[in-house]
Design a protein around this nucleic acid. Structure first.
Lengths: 218, 218
DNA sequence: TCGAGCATTATTGTTCAACAACTTTGTTTC
DNA sequence: GAAACAAAGTTGTTGAACAATAATGCTCGA
């Protein structure tokens, strides 16, 4: 692959991992030097990440890590409901992706059991497993374009999570809920599974919005 | 706006209008000179359009206009069904976007009446109006992210249309169908409207795939 | 004549340095 | 304390240069 592609991927990972706080500005010269590339090369990578919604670009003010607002969170969940629920509703339990969903649920359950009270790192791992579950779920639709769109949505949502400093409340309740979605889908069919998933998404949105609201008050 | 933003927009329009044939390579130096910008600036615009799926980037072979395959068309329509049908299903007739749908239908009907047998230019105009209808339809969902995704899908689909040299068969039947979707939605509700829309999309996909299949044989 | 291998050419990838355009900051002044 | 202005810093864009890779054309031998 290209240096640019690798650069964009590396930056993407760092941003998602929270190496830069949401909203913080990224200095071109500083980061270019940090990665040992020219400013021009970095700018091309910035451009790609801006298109994905991870960076925000303001003319003559450079790029900053996106910092989702409440409106963004609402929109992201709206799009999630459309994509995820439809994907699950139209799928068969025999789809190979179901196995990946299984594995993700197991991984999340294991990670949640390891995670002690406030080990942020461990809870982040639970979050990753939860996310893997939903990515696999979207893959049920066998649509590269929907999968890509969903990947971008998930990355943005992760930025929203980064703004909240109570990772446990964000991830713990949903380990069980993911399990419920999967089991319902397998035992009672797509229709019921999709309904369960919708409830999941509504609750998850509520938790995030609640945390955001509390943040703005504090 | 930036020179880069304007550049990307201008390029986007030209590509959608068929200024470059799908699949054709875009020489950096030639196009940079044509627009009177430096190669580096152009490359950043290329990067953005590649992210949108309009350009294809192969390392050391530059960018070419995307040339959707049959698999791409199938995927695009899959995504369209998910986004459009869900959007219509959950909307109210009072939504302001309904008016834009009305206008688009009227514009398409007018353009179709003006278009004589094989006036490719006129039929392209019908296609634009048809597209405006569906863009407005997606806006019923009030989701910037879904709207953006849909915009990209529509642009890609236009490239597929460009590969087919019978614009009439591509656009004419659907003027009436759009009208039917809108009327059904308004008189018989969202459920029926969404069902009509689904039929629309299935038929439209069939027409495009048929044309593609015939292309590969000829 | 044909194909394999090789040299040539053209294009893209990346860097660097410079300057223009603009925003932000800091200072002065009233 | 607010407005106006100057200074400093950052981004936007350019042009040239060279490296890395792909496409092309050529030679040579079978």
């Amino acid at each position: 692959m290209n240096q640019q592609g690798m650069l964009a991927d590396a930056l993407r990972q760092q941003i998602i991992d929270g190496a830069f706080a949401p909203g913080s500005r990224l200095s071109e010269s500083a980061i270019a030097e940090h990665f040992g590339v020219a400013r021009n090369t970095l700018r091309e990578a910035f451009r790609a990440l801006s298109e994905q919604g991870l960076l925000e670009h303001v003319p003559h003010r450079g790029v900053s890590v996106a910092s989702p607002t409440i409106a963004d969170v609402i929109d992201i969940y709206r799009a999630r409901r459309v994509i995820e629920c439809t994907a699950l509703l139209h799928s068969e339990p025999e789809h190979p992706s179901v196995q990946r969903m299984q594995q993700a649920v197991l991984a999340a359950e294991a990670a949640a059991q390891d995670a002690v009270l406030d080990d942020a790192e461990a809870w982040r791992e639970v979050g990753s497993a939860n996310m893997a579950f939903h990515v696999a779920l979207v893959d049920l639709a066998d649509s590269p374009r929907l999968a890509r769109t969903y990947r971008d949505l998930a990355a943005e949502l992760r930025l929203a999570f980064l703004k909240i400093d109570d990772p446990r409340s964000l991830h713990e309740p949903f380990v069980r809920k993911n399990r419920a979605v999967l089991d319902t889908f397998l035992t009672r069919g797509a229709q019921e599974g999709a309904a369960e998933l919708e409830r999941y998404l509504v609750q998850s949105e509520r938790v995030v919005l609640g945390a955001f609201a509390r943040m703005q008050l504090g």
